[in-house]
């Protein structure tokens, strides 16, 4: 398989995973970028473990997911029910700190990067199997009691609290899962590229992910499946002269989508209509119906 195509497929899987990792906590109204920091930490960890300690891939993968989840879980004690922008800044600050630590740590290659990570057979296959598993889990969460509780929290925190939804543990749950997915993406990224550079885990990455999530649509998990290959994958196939402008395109698209179609291309309403259920629930009567169900 030509490498460009395998990069395209691999990055698409990683972008979808990362977008889901941001999608999940946004179900309760939190823009959770800490997952990018988890991804960076786990990426370097797995690179180091594979090269220096010779750990097998599957072992690295499991430990990597665990590390991501543990970091997110610990932080979630403080920001489980924090307001959106507190969560935003915790994520951004954490990314910045992790990036600076990596850049200044000679053991990890500093600004030059970390090279020589042993390749893994059938990585793409493994990536897409993992993607399927994660997608299945998210689908189950979305269609469970937790998912419905999250919808209420998104629309109205006070109403949710008064209905007895435990906002903090709900937020902790979503953040921990997001951390685990970030860890998984970190491992896949490391073995896909075979080398690491701190540049990748920067602010631009956050911008790209936010763009994919909001353009694709944040109300359902399916939106990013459409947007990630187009926005994240295709620039890999294009010549550098064009793809170096991708950030400008991301930014413009982001502003346009918020102005024209604030819920993104693929919305819950659209999926309901596709399924032929025309009783789409608007935000306000969602709360009312939940009130009957939860209360």
């Amino acid at each position: 398989m030509p490498t460009v195509l395998s990069y395209f497929l691999g990055f698409t899987a990683i972008y979808i995973l990362m977008c889901w990792a941001i999608y999940l906590p946004y179900r309760v109204g939190q823009l959770y970028f800490t997952t990018v920091a988890c991804m960076a930490i786990v990426a370097y960890f797995s690179g180091f473990a594979a090269r220096e300690w010779g750990w097998p891939f599957i072992f690295v993968l499991l430990v990597g997911i665990a590390i991501g989840a543990i970091i997110a879980y610990i932080l979630s004690h403080a920001i489980g029910k924090a307001p959106c922008f507190t969560v935003v800044i915790v994520g951004l600050a954490f990314i910045f700190i992790v990036k600076t630590v990596i850049e200044n740590w000679e053991l990890l290659g500093g600004t030059v990067g970390f090279f020589g990570i042993p390749p893994v057979n059938n990585l793409l296959l493994i990536a897409y199997i993992l993607l399927g598993i994660v997608g299945f889990v998210i689908y189950q969460i979305d269609h469970s009691r937790l998912g419905r509780a999250a919808s209420v929290v998104f629309v109205d925190r006070d109403a949710a609290a008064s209905l007895g939804v435990n906002i903090k543990s709900l937020g902790m749950f979503y953040q921990t899962i997001a951390g685990a997915i970030g860890g998984m993406a970190g491992v896949l990224y490391t073995f896909l590229l075979g080398s690491l550079s701190p540049e990748f885990f920067a602010f631009a990455m956050v911008g790209s992910l936010v763009c994919m999530l909001f353009v694709g649509g944040y109300t359902t998990m399916w939106g990013v499946i459409v947007s990630a290959p187009i926005l994240g994958g295709i620039p890999i196939l294009l010549p550098v002269t064009i793809s170096s402008w991708r950030q400008v395109i991301y930014g413009i698209l982001l502003v346009l989508i918020i102005l024209v179609r604030p819920e993104g291309l693929i919305t819950k309403r659209m999926l309901w209509n596709l399924k032929g259920k025309n009783r789409y629930k608007t935000a306000s009567n969602l709360v009312n119906t939940r009130r009957e169900k939860v209360g």
């Binding site: 922008f85 631009a204 930014g251 102005l259």
Partner: peptide
């Protein structure tokens, strides 16, 4: 909500930086 204004301004910021 106000999150949308943050996301849009993030978009503007990205464009300007780039």
């Amino acid at each position: 909500d106000i999150n949308a204004s943050f996301v849009a301004s993030l978009g503007i910021a990205i464009v300007i930086t780039d």
